[in-house]
Each structure stands twice: as C-alpha cells, then as structure tokens.
C-alpha cells in the first residue's frame, strides 16, 4: 500500500520525465556556469571576503540560492496550473488522496530536485577547491530545510491566487530582492542598517549563512539553532498555510 503522498510524488516525477532534458540543464549546468562567470570573473577583482577568496565565499551562497530558486520554481506556476488549467488537484481530490498528501507530495518532489542539484553543485565546488571544511557534508541538509521553508509558503501563496500576474509581484518584491540582498553576493553587513532586518526575515539569508558556515568551517553570524529555528518556523507555518489554502481552494 503506497502512501498517497508518494503517489502524488510519482505523478510529479512522471511529468518530470517529459521535461527533464531542459530542466536538468538549468538545474545542474547553470549554477556551475554562474560560478565560473561570477565567482571566477568578478572574483579576480575582489580581494578576500571574510578571510577567504571570493569564489570560496560565494559558493555556499550560490548553492543556497539555487535551492531557493528551484524550490520557488516548483511551487508557483505548476501549483496554480494544477488548480486552474490542468485541474490535477481536482482529480486527486476525487480519490483517497488528501489535501495534506498533495502538499507533502509536492514538497517531496521539490526536495528531490533540490537535493540532486545541490549534490552535483557540491562536487563541482569541491573540484574548484571551494570547500574548506568537512562540515560541507551537511549542506544538503541545510538545502533541504531551506527548500521546504521556501516551497511550503510559496505553495500556499500559489493556491491562494487566481491569476498568474501575482507571481510577477511575488518575484519582484520578495524573491528577487531576497536573492540579491540575502548575503549571496556580498555580506549583509554592507547593507544600510535600516534594510538589514529585511534580509534577516528572508529564509534565504539563514540558509546562506548556515551553508557558508558549513563549507568554510566558521561560526555563522547567529547561533546555529537560531538560523535553523527560523527555517523550521517558515517550513512549519508555510506547511500549515499551504494545507489550509489547498483545502479552501478544493472545498467546493
């Protein structure tokens, strides 16, 4: 007897089989290209940041940011589409699959995709000599936590809107600012004092700092449990929101 959530995951995987070529390229190759272009290209002009070369400094940032973007990518258009156009969730609703299974299945899928991309990226980063500590092995765990912390609330958002133009607002006002100012490219300390709290409330920043602590073997700016706690709260609250938003949308 399979768990219904696994059945939902299998459906996502079945769909993925059709699209994997293009998306494999964007999830495995693009982060590496980015590393080359930015880490190496710009790194040449940057001295040391936090006591290490720029490439080693941004590797954990790019890794967390990749996890972040993939988690968002898997929980926006595809979720709205399954409510609005494909009605895949309505199909599931007529079976023993429950609302919670739909959310969990979606999260499992996002996790699988993020983890595979993160592992490939780590290997490449290792080849570049950017992993400075054995703690680097925990980055996939951090990436998983980050992925759920982001995918869950975004799924809730996607289930609550009725038009895809709201995604443009989500991207512009939440996702892109996070990616640009969440400590991926330069330390958050450089931000003016007034906007720094905005970085602190972004799950990406906490993920970046934990990853950076792991690959460089240094202490993160805040205690590890605080960073992890913030991510757990996002994941938990986001999950509750997603389940209730799915339930509301499928009620009638």
């Amino acid at each position: 007897m399979v768990s219904p959530a696994v059945a939902v995951l299998e459906r996502h995987l079945c769909l993925y089989r059709r699209l994997w070529r293009a998306s494999a390229f964007s999830s495995f190759v693009l982060p590496v290209l980015f590393l080359v272009s930015f880490g190496v290209g710009v790194g040449r002009y940057v001295g040391e940041v936090g006591g290490v070369g720029y490439l080693a400094w941004i590797v954990p940032g790019v890794l967390a940011s990749t996890a972040f973007q993939m988690a968002v990518g898997d929980s926006t258009y595809s979720v709205l589409g399954d409510f609005k156009w494909v009605r895949g969730f309505h199909a599931m609703r007529a079976t023993p699959v429950g609302v919670r299974d739909m959310v969990v299945g979606g999260l499992l899928y996002a996790l699988l995709r993020v983890e595979s991309a993160v592992v490939v990226f780590l290997v490449v980063a290792g080849v570049f000599g950017a992993l400075r500590s054995p703690w680097a092995v925990v980055t996939p765990v951090v990436a998983a936590l980050l992925a759920v912390a982001v995918a869950a609330p975004v799924m809730g958002f996607s289930a609550s809107i009725d038009h895809d133009s709201y995604f443009a607002l989500l991207f512009r006002f939440v996702m892109i600012p996070s990616a640009l100012f969440g400590g991926v490219f330069f330390p958050v300390d450089q931000l003016p004092q007034v906007v720094r709290p905005l970085a602190y409330v972004s799950p990406l920043w906490h993920g970046v700092e934990l990853c950076r602590a792991a690959t460089l073997g240094v202490a993160p700016p805040w205690p590890v449990w605080v960073h992890a706690g913030v991510l757990l709260v996002f994941a938990g609250a986001g999950g509750v929101w997603a389940v209730s938003a799915f339930g509301r949308r499928l009620r009638d």
């Binding site: 710009v42 002009y45 940057v46 001295g47 940041v49 720029y54 443009a168 607002l169 512009r172 006002f173 892109i176 600012p177 640009l180 100012f181 490219f185 330069f186 450089q190 931000l191």
Partner: peptide
C-alpha cells in the same frame, strides 16, 4: 514594478558587489 527589478540588480551587483571590487 518591472522597473524595480533592474534597479535592484544595480544596487546589489553595482553597489553591493562594487564595494568589494
């Protein structure tokens, strides 16, 4: 808000990374 996006890039990469470079 379409205008907002490139300005954010400018601030992040131009100013933020610029300070490192």
């Amino acid at each position: 808000s379409g205008f907002f996006e490139p300005v954010l890039y400018l601030l992040s990469i131009g100013v933020g990374v610029g300070a490192l470079v």
